[in-house]
Nucleic acid binder design. Structure first.
Length: 595
RNA sequence: GGUCCUAUAGUUCAAUGGAUAGAACGAAGGUUUCCUAAACCUUAAAUCCAGGUUCGAUUCCUGGUGGGACUACCA
């Protein structure tokens, strides 16, 4: 629609002023609510071409397209703005044309599609997932859906940080204090059990440090020399050298954690195409580093540690191998990136990782570039802000970390309570009801998080997040179920089946607003993909839900006596529902048919 | 100290350089013999400060101020 308009506007300018205009001078935007019109041409940029005042220029162009472009039914000029109204019948025809598009708004993957790897989640295997991971998972999952809906080949991956000193800490604590506790013996979810030992390590370690400082040791020295820390370091060395006993313990505890993570991922509704493990990729990283060392891209210090010198890029020096030869986080990320490129030959690689790692990813791309990998230019750190609580940052020490499993349960509980109070789910089995509660609770959580610009830190207010009214996920779901309810009744009454019956219907203003929103959906998907912005999709879903609710309130659909208008309204509702469902799908939110 | 992110109603969030800054929650009031009131309608309420670029700045640039992150042989 707006492309057609743009062409006729360009034509108008060419005829009137005898000059071709470049694309960027024709600024078309949606007309603001308080003015009459559908699209608005901002005429200021054209004044140099017309050599006339804004009002006259607007009027001249407006008069021309009104006379020469059939789809324009009306124009008006306010200051430097030319407001253009598209004829109602044009909008109606536009609506019916959506039907001919097989998967409205979504593009499918083709031979020339860009390949994009999206990494998200990236858990450590020493503690359960928390609220911060939830933001990460939801963003990553939604991004992957948005990208694939815009026609890209998307590979969803996860890197599991399953090795390193932090893992050794929980292993050591379990060995020393665990008395053989297992998920089976304790009934604890595996990731929580392992997390408990990580916390225990920290507690006992602090005690040891305190004891040492009391004996007169400096706090730095004490931190180095506490037996637990020495033990953890020793364990890491054993692990890297392949010690069987250590590996067995590691395998066992990791398997507990993975079982726990699977439950959380499933509850959250996210999945991956390929999961990488740091324990596999760090070796590749070490090889890369050693190889680059021989090419003198990196250098070795006297103590044997290996570094990248990035001072010419105005950054610091970066450690890549410790003096004892063990790998650090950066080492494995180098390896992971190269392995992934070998696996998928990606054009782009998006890392969904918190903004506290901005530096890390800047360095990662630089080092890969130095090593000679041209594709490193395709690496993109999708950096998102922290999640804070109303009382401030989450601190594990103070026990204010919001656990992912708990949170999901609480949202479902709230949905259950609310739903039972409203009592609209009669006739469903308990199992069906539970499935609906879960969809609603998760929608509240997901929408609450995804509607916020990812770059910004966000405040997670538990009281607000479980609100199901207003600008929330359940509000949008509710709109969808209202539509389904109408469609079901229409179907039962044999109405709305004839889509050719409304070719003469002239839609009213509210209906045109809805058609416009539906019409926007395909370009919205592309924009969200280009901008990597689930928030854009969330806002869109809310806009159309709000618009439909107003329509639903102001007009009757099934009660309309004119059969053609009724059929038209049923069809319009159907399309609005479809777009809401697709929009929510892009956010990873499921819709219930009733609620 | 250095680098990066950020600042909009009481609160949580919107606004490709365009018109009178838009929602939600909260506050006050109203709507149900009518397709689901988890809805709809009305009212009050905001661009951190100072410069600059521009016909036009919440948006871009510079400098302040407040908040946050990073600057580990942690991840």
């Amino acid at each position: 629609m707006d492309i057609l308009l743009k062409e006729s506007l360009a034509g108008a300018v060419a005829v009137l002023y005898g000059k071709e205009v470049s694309e960027n001078l024709l600024q078309i935007q949606k007309t603001k609510k308080e003015f009459t019109g559908d699209y608005t041409l901002v005429v200021f940029p054209l004044l140099r071409i017309s050599g006339k005042s804004p009002e006259i220029t607007g009027q001249e162009i407006g008069d021309y397209i009104l006379a020469n472009t059939p789809l324009v039914s009306e124009i008006n000029v306010v200051k430097g703005f030319l407001n253009i109204t598209i004829s109602s019948s044009e909008w109606r025809d536009r609506l019916t044309s959506f039907d001919s598009e097989p998967d409205f708004g979504f593009s499918s993957e083709g031979k020339n599609s860009e390949t994009v790897v999206v990494e998200y989640s990236s858990p450590n295997t020493n503690k359960p997932l928390h609220l911060g991971h939830i933001r990460n998972n939801l963003l990553g999952y939604s991004l992957s859906r948005i990208l694939s809906a815009s026609g890209k080949r998307v590979i969803r991956t996860n890197i599991v940080n399953d090795r390193g000193i932090h893992i050794c800490k929980s292993m050591l604590a379990w060995k020393l204090f665990g008395n053989g506790e297992t998920p089976e013996s304790s009934g604890k979810k595996g990731d929580h059990l392992v997390g408990d030992y990580y916390v225990m390590f920290d507690k006992e370690y602090k005690k040891q440090v305190a004891a040492l400082t009391e004996k007169g040791m400096s706090s730095d020295e004490a931190a180095e020399n506490a037996p637990l820390m020495a033990g953890a370091r020793e364990m890491l060395l054993k692990w890297e050298s392949g010690d069987n006993e250590t590996l067995d313990l590691w395998h066992m505890m990791n398997s507990w954690v993975y079982a726990g993570f699977d439950v959380t991922y499933k509850a959250l509704g996210v999945e991956f195409d390929k999961i990488y493990y740091e324990s596999d990729t760090f070796k590749k990283g070490k090889e890369l580093v050693l190889e680059a060392l021989t090419r003198e891209i990196l250098y070795k210090k006297e103590d044997g540690s290996v570094w990248a010198d990035l001072t010419s890029e105005k950054l610091d020096q970066k450690l890549l191998l410790r003096s004892d030869g063990t790998a650090v986080y950066m080492t494995q990320d180098l390896g992971t990136a190269v392995i992934r490129h070998d696996d998928f030959n990606f054009d782009k690689h998006i890392y969904v990782v918190g903004n506290e790692q901005n530096y890390h990813f800047q360095v990662l791309a630089l080092i890969l570039g130095k090593m000679g990998f041209g594709w490193a230019e395709g690496l993109h750190h999708f950096s998102y802000g922290m999640v804070e609580l109303p009382e401030g940052k989450m601190k594990s020490r103070e026990g204010t970390v919001v656990d992912a499993d708990d949170l999901i349960d609480e949202m479902t509980d709230t949905a259950r309570l609310m739903s039972q109070e409203l009592g609209k789910l009669e006739g469903f089995s308990e199992g069906e009801k539970e499935a609906i509660y879960k969809k609603i609770g998760l929608a509240a959580l997901k929408y609450y998080i995804l509607k916020v610009d990812p770059k910004k830190n966000m405040t997670f207010n538990p009281a607000e997040s479980i609100d199901f009214n207003g600008n929330t996920g359940p509000f949008i779901q509710y709109t969808y179920t209202r539509i389904q309810s109408v469609l079901k009744k229409a179907n039962e009454g044999g109405m709305g089946l004839n889509r050719n019956s409304f070719t003469d219907v002239i839609p009213n203003a509210k209906e045109i607003s809805l058609i416009k929103l539906i019409n926007d959906f395909p370009s919205l998907v592309n924009e969200a993909s280009r901008e990597l912005s689930p928030a854009l999709v969330a806002n869109y879903c809310y806009d159309i839900a709000k618009e439909f609710n107003q329509y639903y309130h102001d007009y009757t659909i099934l009660g309309e006596s004119d059969k053609n208008i009724r059929d038209f309204r049923i069809y319009l509702s159907d399309m609005a529902g479809l777009v809401i469902k697709k929009g929510l799908w892009l956010l990873g939110i499921d819709v219930p048919e009733r609620m």
